[in-house]
């Protein structure tokens, strides 16, 4: 049946309306999970609050289990899902930069908009920085970032193809890893709870 748009069940013109509804829901859930607070997000890096890790891991595990079972039941055709091509070097450099930005600024791009929406000044400043960064990247792309951006194109690879195992087997190990991580977050939070910041 799915993906609904590729299969022609939903008109592609609905794309932006669906994106709008999903975006609003996403922001709402970010706010509900407390992600519009910079302290909550940097808590992962200092070890006193692991909510971010748990929420995102829950989201990834839920979505991937859902997709694989839906695929098995024929409700969605995983072969029709668009997979972003992997540019390995820009992914590594970009990942490190985003990580640093999250520690320094206390937000990731999505949560900064959630914070700005409820009137957080630091969130608004963060968005300002985001635009400056985008502008700088765009203006200097040709002579600073072009080579890095285009290097190491691995195509639309998936982990299970790379490892030569079935998607179900990879998901099995990923879920085991996630369960382990969930329990570790409890231990870590307990260990650092004496440094718990009251806010």
């Amino acid at each position: 049946m799915g993906p609904l748009i590729q299969q022609g069940i939903i008109n592609p013109e609905w794309n932006s309306i669906i994106a709008f509804v999903i975006g609003i829901s996403f922001g709402f859930i970010l706010e509900q999970a407390g992600f519009s607070t910079a302290r909550k997000i940097v808590g992962v890096f200092y070890g006193y609050d692991m909510t971010v890790l748990r929420v995102f891991l829950t989201a990834v595990v839920t979505a991937s289990i859902g997709l694989l079972y839906f695929n098995y039941l024929g409700w969605i055709d995983l072969d029709l899902i668009y997979i972003n091509p992997t540019f390995i070097w820009s992914a590594i450099v970009g990942g490190v930069l985003v990580g640093l930005g999250m520690i320094v600024g206390g937000y990731c791009p999505g949560t900064s908009f959630a914070a700005a929406a409820i009137g957080k000044i630091d969130g608004i400043v963060f968005i300002g920085g985001l635009f400056i960064g985008v502008f700088f990247y765009g203006e200097t792309y040709n002579w600073l970032f072009k080579d890095l951006h285009e290097a190491g194109n691995l195509g639309a690879i998936t982990m299970y193809n790379l490892l030569g195992i079935s998607s179900g087997a990879l998901e099995f190990f990923f879920i085991l890893f996630a369960i382990l991580l969930f329990w570790m977050t409890i231990v870590i939070t307990k260990k650092f709870s004496n440094k718990l910041l009251k806010y």
């Binding site: 595990v61 694989l68 179900g168 879920i175 085991l176 329990w183 409890i186």
Partner: peptide, 23 residues
Amino acid sequence: YYFVTGILFLLALGLLLLPHRKN
């Protein structure tokens, strides 16, 4: 937490045992 862990593990086991479906 134990309950959720159990459910997750069962779902994971299911995915491991299900045959691969070719679309």
